[in-house]
Design a protein around this nucleic acid. Structure first.
Length: 874
RNA sequence: GGGGAAUUAACUCAGUUGGUAGAGUGCUUCCGUCACAUGGAAGAAGUCAUAGGUUCGAGUCCUAUAUUCCCUACCA
């Protein structure tokens, strides 16, 4: 074996082999319980960034664990066409080549989209492979492939027929750049340092009597239909019903009363512009007001704006304000802070705009989805996201699902050109169901991409067909996703699953945080600050990437990702590699024979490591089942590095210089432990564990289909553990003294070990000497005494070391004094507790007892330290 | 306006039936020893944001406050 693990050469080979063996493929297997994770399909807009790698790693780690635990594990991969987002990208790309969407026409444009899908889809899938995902390639899906088109179609038709989908002429968020409607959650609000203009509206027929209206968007005044006051506002009672003239025009509008107006804000008078403000739209509707749109769909002013026709809305604002100023209409301007909506795709300022769109009525659909989370049939992890989910669902607005774009799923509504009826019957779209006409034209719009995403947990399993897959793997077990798409996606999957299949689509949702860059910024495609996971893979390997992503994270909590985590992960993998290499190389040097643990004559050290391994297995399994992967990693890190490598392997080196029998014993134990370690770690770091596993003297065809280690009752050795841990304490004390005294290697300080508790320590003698840094210490077989002998006591052994002239007395006295201080603090603490009657009366007995034991122990220790001190001083 | 999260060592972060605070990185000192210098050994380092409360006992539970961030909302 080479000195360092070389992932680059091995990963592809190993991965291909896994695929070839069919390990990733899940089958309908009635004798096993399924565990299903449908992967969130990444947008096909670009290559994957580190955030995707994070989600992928979580999922693959969990699915590998479940597979080893004996489940029929399915990780189903897929990609999302991301209708609008991709169309924006492709349109931009075309524009850079001097081509417009319109000049190509719908059909040709969709061909360009197809090419894009192929290019980026392939790239994303190969990135999945590079990350080592054990996903079932036979079931890979795309939100725009034929089966998924059928699902979407069916879903739309069903909802339509139940009356949940309706066409409405309402005010919607409109992006003047993408020229499409957006759903509420596709609008990002940003704080804007704007202005608020106070404008005089003169009464009709008067040029001196006026009222003042405040607005942040003066250009919309051409669409004003009224000015509203609060019905309870005493100031304005007698004005209601009078008419005002819109400045610079000759159009008159009434003053109306509506409770929407806040008496205490601004002047208490609001101009009502139903076409350009959602609230005004409501007010207008209540009062039967007309809707006057003053803009075109590209954000330029239309003829209602008079001489400003054709001017962009923001330019018009500037010019109009100037005109108002000149005309004496402008009373004052104030700075005003408000939130302005931007298109989440192209970042243009969104205009509220009245258009005809398709909506899903959400009220009824939300009800069972709320219930599912409330009654626990869907669990969100961490739990706090349930509150977030519920508050959104309980206040949900109807979902605008139409987009004025070409890509994506075209709305399956065929409008009869003769009678105007909408035909959604999927089987016969050529004949109008109402009048029999063949003059049908399909709605030109496409569906919001989330409409197809909402079906993902079951469309991927064959729905609406009643497939075996659906029966067996659905409802799925776990959905892993970042918390930022809880509304976009999770909520919609839940209500869709219940609506279409009668069951919630999954029982648990694991919500992780966002991976941020080292400045704490969200990594996003649009910002372009994403780290390419492939770069990390190329430099350090997939295992390092995966392990580094799982280090130091908490579910639902954002994490910064940087070089430190990467290096720490790499170092650990290197450590694991070398510990394994150590034994693998060693068993080649003698006549190694495999023996089961139960046939070996175990030493205290053996029993300690086996016991400790056993505890680790129990703890890891518990954390895994809670999806606390970061804790799993930390637990294994600690065991492998600080227990197995630092102590067991070190002490085993002595046995390796012993008899054939000893060598064979210790190698069998090491191999056994390593085998378990590899299996425990495999879900996180699949490649290095597989590689080492194949080098072990006894191994199966692949570690990924082995059983996950389980806790073994008979492998608890509490006595040995106690002795060995005591020994560790003693060794550390000796090392500490050595380091303090600056003992030269040539000094050979005599050290005597006295057995206190009656345990057999013979097997530890030589090994201990080594661990104490043998060169400067020499073990002696008879007790040593004298004024220069320093003693160290533990529960199972006492140590006596002759300090002689080697002691740096000053620093040793300082060290002992420091220790004395600590001991006194401990004693004070324990005595304090024990003197507290409340503690003694109410605390659990074992705690009280352990405090008593501590007092005893520290009292003894104190005496020793004092004795050593007085010797040094004397 | 409403909701949520965060605040723990120099840095990045863990820490649930409440029981004497942990890791990684960095720092100080020592070590080319035959698994690993991507390493080994020893060590320093924290009023767990603040103030109250509950409790025998609080990083942990409760109530305020401060700072930072996120989500959400119709204040023109």
């Amino acid at each position: 074996m080479e000195k360092n693990f070389r992932p680059d050469e091995l990963e592809t080979k190993i991965y291909d082999n896994w695929v070839r063996q069919g390990y990733f493929h899940a089958t309908v297997n009635k004798s096993k319980q399924p565990f299903t994770i449908i992967m969130p399909p990444p947008n096909i807009t670009a290559r994957l960034h580190i955030g995707h790698a994070f989600t992928c790693t979580l999922q693959d780690t969990i699915i590998r664990y479940k597979r080893m635990k004996g489940y029929e594990a399915l990780l189903l991969p897929g990609i999302d066409h991301a209708a609008l987002a991709t169309e924006v990208k492709v349109t931009e790309k075309l524009r850079s080549e001097g081509i417009t969407k319109e000049s190509l026409g719908r059909e040709k444009f969709l061909k360009v989209m197809d090419d894009w899908y192929k290019e980026y889809g392939g790239e994303i899938l190969s990135q999945f492979r590079a990350m080592g995902l054990s996903c079932d390639w036979d079931r890979q899906a795309f939100t725009m492939d034929e089966p998924r088109c059928r699902s979407v179609h069916e879903a739309f038709v069903r909802l339509y027929k139940k009356g949940y989908i309706y066409e409405g002429n309402r005010i919607t968020n409109w992006c003047i750049n993408c020229k499409t409607a957006l759903s509420d959650i596709e609008v990002e609000y940003e704080n804007n340092d704007g202005s608020i203009w106070y404008i005089k509206y003169f009464y009709e027929g008067s040029d001196s009597e006026y009222i003042t209206v405040a607005t942040t968007r003066p250009e919309t005044m051409f669409g004003d239909v009224a000015v509203a006051v609060n019905p309870d506002d005493d100031r304005y009672q007698d004005m209601i019903g009078r008419k005002l003239v819109i400045p610079t025009t000759d159009r008159a509008i009434p003053i109306i009363a509506d409770a929407y107006v806040d008496k205490d804000f601004g002047t208490g008078m609001v101009k009502i512009t139903p076409a350009h403000d959602p609230n005004d739209f409501e007010v207008g509707a209540r009062h039967n007001m007309p809707i006057i749109s003053v803009m075109n769909d590209d954000g330029t002013m239309n003829s209602y704006a008079g001489k400003y026709e054709g001017m962009d809305r923001l330019e018009c604002r500037k010019a109009l304000v100037e005109e108002l100023k000149q005309g004496g209409y402008l009373l004052k301007v104030e700075r005003h802070n408000n939130n302005v909506g931007h298109c989440c795709r192209c970042h243009t300022i969104v205009e509220p705009f009245v258009t005809k769109q398709w909506y899903v009525a959400m009220k009824e659909l939300a009800k069972p989805a709320i219930e599912a989370v409330k009654n626990g049939s869907v669990k969100l992890i961490p739990k706090r996201f349930e509150k977030l989910y519920l508050s959104w669902m309980e206040n949900i607005n109807d979902w605008c699902i139409s987009r004025q774009i070409w890509s994506g799923h075209r709305i399956p509504v065929f409008k009869c050109q003769d009678c105007g009826a909408n035909n959604v019957d999927y089987t016969d779209p050529t004949t109008c169901a109402k009048c029999g006409s063949h003059n049908l034209v399909q709605d030109p719009d496409s569906l919001d991409t989330w409409f197809s995403s909402a079906l993902w947990p079951f469309s991927t399993l064959g729905w609406p067909d009643k497939t075996e897959d659906l029966k067996y793997f659905y409802p799925t077990n776990l959905m892993v996703t970042a918390y930022d798409i809880i509304f976009f996606w999770v909520a919609r999957m839940i209500f869709s699953g219940i609506e279409y299949t009668g069951k919630p689509p999954f029982s648990e949702v694991l919500m992780h945080g966002l991976v941020r860059d080292n400045l704490g910024r969200k990594m996003s495609k649009s910002l372009g600050n994403g780290i390419d996971p492939l770069e990390v893979i190329n430099k350090y390997g997939t295992d390092t990437l995966r392990l580094s992503l799982l280090t130091g994270i908490a579910m639902g909590q954002d994490a910064k990702y940087g070089q430190e985590k990467i290096e720490s992960a790499r170092n650990f993998i290197n450590k694991l590699w070398n510990a394994s290499r150590f034994v693998i190389e060693n068993i080649k040097t003698f006549d190694y024979k495999y023996e089961p643990i139960k046939d070996l004559e175990l030493t205290i050290a053996d029993e300690w490591i086996l016991s400790s391994l056993n505890d680790t297995i129990a703890s890891v399994t518990k954390s895994f089942d809670k999806y606390d992967l970061s804790v799993v990693v930390a637990t294994l890190y600690e065991f492998v590095w600080n227990k197995f490598c630092d102590w067991y392997i070190e002490i085993a080196k002595t046995s390796l210089h012993g008899t054939q029998q000893e060598k064979n014993r210790v190698c069998n134990v090491i191999v056994y432990v390593i085998d378990k370690i590899l299996k425990l770690l495999h879900p996180m770091i699949p490649y290095v564990t597989e590689t080492i596993y194949q080098e072990l003297p006894v191994h199966g065809p692949s570690i990924m289909v082995e059983d996950y280690p389980t806790y073994i009752k008979s492998m608890r050795y509490s006595d040995s553990s106690k002795i060995f841990e005591s020994m560790i304490e003693v060794v550390k004390s000796v090392r500490n003294i050595r380091a303090n005294m600056n003992v030269a290697d040539s000094m050979k300080a005599p050290l005597y070990v006295e057995n206190v508790a009656g345990y057999d320590l013979t097997s530890l003698g030589d090994a201990m000497m080594k661990l104490c840094s043998g060169k400067s210490i020499q073990f002696v077989s008879s007790k040593i005494e004298g004024s220069d002998v320093i003693s160290i006591h533990s529960e199972v052994m006492n140590l006596y070391i002759r300090s002689g002239d080697m002691v740096d007395k000053v620093s040793e006295i300082a060290r002992l004094n420091a220790e004395l201080k600590k001991i006194d603090a401990e004693l004070a603490r324990s005595n304090n507790l024990l003197n507290n009657p409340g503690f003694v009366a109410k605390a659990p007995k074992n705690l009280v007892d352990s405090e008593k034991e501590k007092v005893e122990k520290f009292t003894k220790l104190r005496a020793t330290v004092c004795e050593n001190l007085s010797k040094l001083n004397g």
